[in-house]
Design a binder for these strands. Structure first.
Lengths: 187, 187
DNA sequence: ACCTGAACACCGTTCAAGT
DNA sequence: ACCTGAACACCGTTCAAGT
């Protein structure tokens, strides 16, 4: 019996609808208000706060889903592609993290304090670590680099504005990150 | 006669006091409200809005000062240190941008749309370019890297939370950025 | 046990009235 | 010209009252 199944039927349905509606609302407007979301979900404001104690908690839950997808993508890519190609693909997918880019960036920012976010954060760091370690046996990637530092660098792409210039800049930024992973001459 | 001197004496004094008070208030609390700032500056809310049409404009003005300091620091460092040392020092200073880190990050984010922010943004890109070009004649830094991409990577450090772990992470991130600037084996 | 929705304190922003 | 500060619409959050 999962945590979710402990809830009464109507409560479980509400929780799901809140997350679904919130996801859509925040996609079209990252500043959407909780009252708007509650109304769109057809529930009272108090119900929303019963499920998510504050705005940050709701955002964390929404973005956690997107992070889950990214985390699961890493081993899948390693199954299909060479390690270096997998790393490249994953970084691109990360940089274009759906329509919730800013939200993921905020999740990473806040990750130090909140319990739930720390877990999300560690999942991402581990995904990066798995990709990097697979690459260490391949030309072009050196050993001993820090996955957390790489994730921090990757997060800078989440703040890049959409558009043609942003797309080109994202590519240059990702290339520069990979360049940083080259093995040192001595090693 | 500068733009500032065109203002009536009281208006000029108010503008200065707003900026000074806002700087202090935002330093201790990045979410400080404009009404609070107006009150602390001893002026009406309308006066604040006469000088800065909205919250973003006030923040931009405050953070612009910090950016100016960073921009002027680049040539000064090149006068005192070797190019590579100057680049290192500047990156560290950038990563610890006073108490307005998050604010500078927001300025960089918003830089694409707003006129005034674009100017601020270009100043920073140029500062990075000057440092990088000076380093191109030095061991360890390759040619042809993109200053805007480097600035984007640097901006990821502005989101790191303070504390012991954050300090160590910042160092690793900066090291990784510099590693990305190594010349390619072929060149 | 869970939900509703009016209410609270506060926010960014405006504007009639003053000097 | 410039300033004041009450007022507006809205925000996140709470809580008495319902089922």
């Amino acid at each position: 019996m999962t945590e979710d199944e402990k809830l009464r039927a109507d409560a479980r349905a509400n929780r799901g609808r809140i997350l679904e509606v919130a996801r859509q609302a925040l996609t079209s407007d990252p500043g959407a208000s909780l009252n708007q979301i509650a109304k769109a979900a057809g529930i009272g404001a108090g119900t929303l706060y019963r499920h998510f104690p504050n705005r940050e908690a709701l955002l964390a839950a929404v973005y956690h889903q997107e992070v889950q997808a990214l985390v699961q993508l890493a081993p899948a890519l390693l199954d299909t592609y060479s390690p270096l190609e997998a790393l490249h693909h994953w970084c691109e997918r990360f940089a274009n993290a759906g329509s919730v880019k800013q939200g993921i960036a905020d999740t990473l920012n806040a990750a130090v304090s909140v319990e739930d976010l720390q877990h999300t954060y560690r999942l991402l760091v581990d995904a990066v670590r798995v990709l990097m370690e697979a690459c260490e046996q391949v030309d072009g990637i050196g050993k001993g680099h820090d996955p957390e530092a790489v994730l921090t660098l990757l997060s800078s792409t989440l703040r890049i504005r959409p558009g043609a210039h942003g797309k080109a800049l994202t590519k240059r930024v990702l290339d520069l990150i990979i360049l940083g992973l080259r093995p040192s001459p001595s090693t």
